[in-house]
Amino acid sequence: RLRTTILPEQLEILYRWYMQDSNPTRKMLDCISEEVGLKKRVVQVWFQNTRARERK
């Protein structure tokens, strides 16, 4: 499996959503993934990793 590259524009959108809610619902993940143009699972893992980084 290839690692997904997240573009700066996509990152900006993801962080904007993250500021609103760091733990989005499944429905929100659907909306975010549509807006960003990434698979739902990629967005979900990005949120998990970002929460983990914040805890450090």
Rank of each mutant, 00 (worst) to 15 (best):
M19S: 12
M28P: 03
W46C: 03
V36Y: 00
Q10P: 02
W46R: 03
L7P: 13
R53E: 15
Y18P: 00
K27E: 14
K40N: 09
A52G: 08
C31Q: 14
K56G: 11
R55H: 13
C31S: 14
K40G: 07
K40E: 11
R53G: 10
L29K: 03
V42K: 04
R55G: 13
Q48L: 07
T25D: 14
N49S: 08
K39M: 01
L14T: 01
P8D: 13
K56I: 03
I32A: 05
S33M: 03
T25M: 06
M19T: 12
N23F: 14
W17A: 10
Q10V: 02
R1Y: 04
L14P: 09
P8A: 12
K40H: 13
W17Q: 09
Y18S: 07
Q44T: 12
L11H: 14
L38K: 06
R41K: 11
G37C: 05
V45M: 10
D21E: 06
S33G: 05
I6M: 09
D21L: 06
L7A: 14
R51H: 03
P24R: 01
V43Y: 05
N49T: 11
K39Q: 15
V36F: 09
E35F: 01
R41Q: 15
C31A: 15
R53W: 07
Y15F: 09
V42D: 15
L7N: 14
L29V: 09
V43S: 02
G37N: 11
R26E: 15
M19F: 08
T25N: 15
L38I: 08
Q20G: 04
I32H: 00
L14A: 02
L11T: 13
K40V: 14
R16V: 07
Q44D: 15
L11D: 08
V36E: 05
R41P: 14
D30K: 12
R1S: 10
K27S: 11
S33R: 04
S33L: 01
Y18E: 03
D21H: 06
Q20R: 13
Q44L: 07
L38D: 05
L14R: 02
L38N: 02
N23M: 09
F47R: 02
T25C: 06
N49D: 14
I6N: 00
L11C: 03
G37W: 06
S22K: 13
L7Y: 06
V45N: 08
V42Q: 05
P24W: 05
V42S: 05
G37L: 05
R53T: 12
